[in-house]
Design a protein around this nucleic acid. Sequence first.
DNA 1: ATAATATTGTTAAATATAAAACAAACTCGA
DNA 2: TCGAGTTTGTTTTATATTTAACAATATTAT
Lengths: 212, 212
Amino acid sequence: MQTLSKNAPMPVVRRLPKYHRNLKELLEEGITKISSKDLSERMGLTASQIRQDLNYFGGFGQQGYGYNIEELIKVIEDILSINNKYNCIIIGAGNLGKAISNYILNLYGNAKVLAIFDIDADKTNKIFNDINIYNMSELKDYLKSNEIDIAILAVPKSSGIEVAKDVINNGIKSIWNFSTADIAVGNDVVIENVAINESFYTLTYLISENEK
Amino acid sequence: MQTLSKNAPMPVVRRLPKYHRNLKELLEEGITKISSKDLSERMGLTASQIRQDLNYFGGFGQQGYGYNIEELIKVIEDILSINNKYNCIIIGAGNLGKAISNYILNLYGNAKVLAIFDIDADKTNKIFNDINIYNMSELKDYLKSNEIDIAILAVPKSSGIEVAKDVINNGIKSIWNFSTADIAVGNDVVIENVAINESFYTLTYLISENEK
DNA sequence: ATAATATTGTTAAATATAAAACAAACTCGA
DNA sequence: TCGAGTTTGTTTTATATTTAACAATATTAT
């Protein structure tokens, strides 16, 4: 099963999780195959786009038949590396950090939060969801003695840049950033931003447009 | 100050909050004017893009001079309707709901969370951040007797669609959706999704690409 | 006041993304 | 087994977005 990316554009990659979720739902409904046309109607896309998206990674369908859902799910999981194991730490033990911790616990069996860090002494040296909350001063040592794949930045205000530098300097190669900070990273580090504040302003824009 | 949108494309709109944040920072640094070139270098964009983005809404700069930062901030706030007042409710009193409540408290003086709702009896009839947490059964009556602008969906699993229908049926015209649900809305309702799970899978994709 | 410099707004070109079109290949019922 | 109907993978066309180019206009120093 060849799934080597022909350097798929990011808009395509960002649609894959949506395909994955819909295909999982279909499988739960007991459906085993689907055509790009039927899937497109379910998802509100064009059939052409679905076929073209998938073909960036390979030809997984069959003429006259469609796509085998179970197989396609596996292919997408492979492309997205969903089933790899990911050891994560969360920086920030506020509600956001805790919420993310829950999110990961509920959604991704393969991802695990091993530790949470915070500067606030009131929050540290406690346990949340069986996870130890350490003080930031322990971060460096922790990263030295543990293999961590992903650092999750859940610091509310813009201490994000500082913290990002910190974890990168201690060997972290991927960051899931929930802070408002614009974090510039080198070529060997990947970053994915969840820009909650920007999302809110987009909503207020849409509201004002809608009211016109 | 004419800021009537010539139907700006969404990619442009989604960059505006980033401009806004950077301009605010510049102002705090005591800088009062900036050229598209300097701003582009700071933000990692092209100067051309900045000029063209802004020109969807009007000509706010001056040849040979650049942009007056304070004025430009006001213009962007006007376009995004940042300074309007927004009455919000949050559905879901878990950590995510609480985190969003904090986020709003800290970031947007103009947006206010008036109530939180949950199905879980253990979480209801309590107060968080001075906000009452009600049972879902009270939602309908609440929406009838209160003017709510935005319903924020912080329900973890996919009860999202049901809840969305609920609030829309009770007059809500805008939704900020943190649930995994794909919510289809009519033309008179606006929705903005924060797809945290999709973001995670995008990150795992980037990690695997980075390791190649 | 003038000229050299800076910088915009806007038009044109390039690139990226999405949709449509269609030949090739498979399916499935008779 | 055959033929009509499906549906893919892929090519072509259309649209959207970004970048480059540049004339027009303001600024600033002299």
